[in-house]
Design a protein around this nucleic acid. Structure first.
Lengths: 235, 235
DNA sequence: CTCAATTTGTTCGTATGTATG
DNA sequence: ACATACATACGAACAAATTGA
């Protein structure tokens, strides 16, 4: 029923199907349907009036405010001033998973696990494997600020590829606790792999975004940078 | 536990924590942990040996084989020969949701709801709103084949924008039945809006992909078309 | 070889939440 | 409001296999 409201199948002000119709449509018992309506009523989406029917009050507010950037520069710019909390650092970490076609592994990696916050709470959990050589250049900053802008600032490092893979994952035990979502809830997972001009993988990050924050907007014509104005703000 | 295997926290051949340790880690009872292990054992991911421990047998096979294209041409090419089953066509459909910054609505739309199949079953449910003018040019083909390649073939139509928005949604009642997933399971939702050179929105499609199929790969440097070789195949 | 510690396997009764009619 | 059914989770006890001192 929530999906029907969000998708516009039921529009604002509409009278939705009666409970008896819904019983048949969803194949559930009257009590169960009423429980569902009760939940949406408390959220302010529906209003039920005895003898008249049930009506759509308002559309849920726009979520998906975190719009993923479409190029590396603006991605770095967005996260530059993010608040993050380091959960764990492991200097001699096991090698991250690197596929053959991505590049060759560096000699060693430091594993940094952190949580990114905004005013509403955590919106992203990050597992970062950073080439030990780069990490050791400025340990202090890497433990306080997002790594990506720091790396782009290093003049001697030329980045040849920035492979990004976006998939849908599920929150495991650790991630769900850090992101404050239920175990098994879906997350938007973005894997970012930076390869330098020697073909060495210097940075592997797995971002787990809260599904309600995440969106990716682009214009499939005229380059990837187009994209319209963001609905709320960028981070 | 599945996530720990997929993420590499437990590697192939490793002995995982004992049931008693897992009880404490996950805060669950012995029987529950065993049920979970049993599920992964049946899937062939784990092997439990009495008196010795439980071991990781193999990594789950690569899923995410459907890689979303990064430009309109190749997107159309990918779907050109897809098998699709029309579920519903409504010629005088209510206007789709169009945002102000996208363009102005056409005079009327035809709503086409279809399911896309591959050998393994349905992998995508599509809600398409097609400008009635364009639909009426070749009703037969639009009810049999994907619309996008047909539109690109029409020489008199110049497409100025192809706005794509990717988010994570949940399968509602209809979608979950068509996609053969559970109610409330997450889906990858891609909204594609085509705007012609007069600023008219001629095409609005919502794709709901099965979460296990979906991935989006690109290189954030050197244009959006880069991307590595797909792991299995493209559709 | 034996014994104790470790670890998985099995079973019992019980409680809770959800859905049914 | 009530009786029923079902899936899931709990806690405890005991059985069986493995390992190493």
């Amino acid at each position: 029923m929530r999906q029907r409201i969000e998708s516009g199948y039921w529009r604002q002000g509409d009278k939705i199907s009666t409970i008896e119709e819904l019983e048949k449509e969803f194949g559930m018992a009257r009590v169960t349907i009423r429980q569902a309506i009760e939940i949406l009523r408390e959220e302010g989406l529906l209003a039920a009036r005895q003898g008249r029917g049930t009506f759509v009050l308002e559309l849920p507010k726009e979520k998906h405010w975190f719009n993923l950037a479409n190029d590396l520069e603006s991605h770095a710019e967005k996260v530059r001033d993010n608040l993050l909390r380091i959960v764990n650092i492991q200097e001699a970490a096991p090698l991250p998973v690197i596929h053959d076609d991505e590049g060759s592994p560096a000699s060693g990696y430091t594993h940094i696990r952190s949580v990114q916050y905004n005013d509403d709470g955590p919106f992203s959990v990050v597992n970062l494997y950073l080439s030990s050589e780069i990490y050791s250049r400025d340990k202090k900053r890497f433990t306080r600020q997002p790594a990506l802008p720091r790396i782009l600032e290093m003049k001697d490092i030329k980045i040849r590829h920035a492979f990004q893979t976006v998939t849908i994952g599920v929150a495991g035990l650790e991630t769900s606790e850090l992101l404050k979502v239920g175990l098994g809830e879906p997350t938007a997972d973005s894997r970012l792999v930076l390869v330098d001009d020697a073909g060495v993988v210097i940075y592997v990050a797995e971002f787990h975004y809260h599904r309600n924050c995440f969106s990716l907007r682009r214009d499939l014509l005229g380059g990837s940078k187009a994209g319209r104005a963001p609905r709320r703000r960028n981070v």
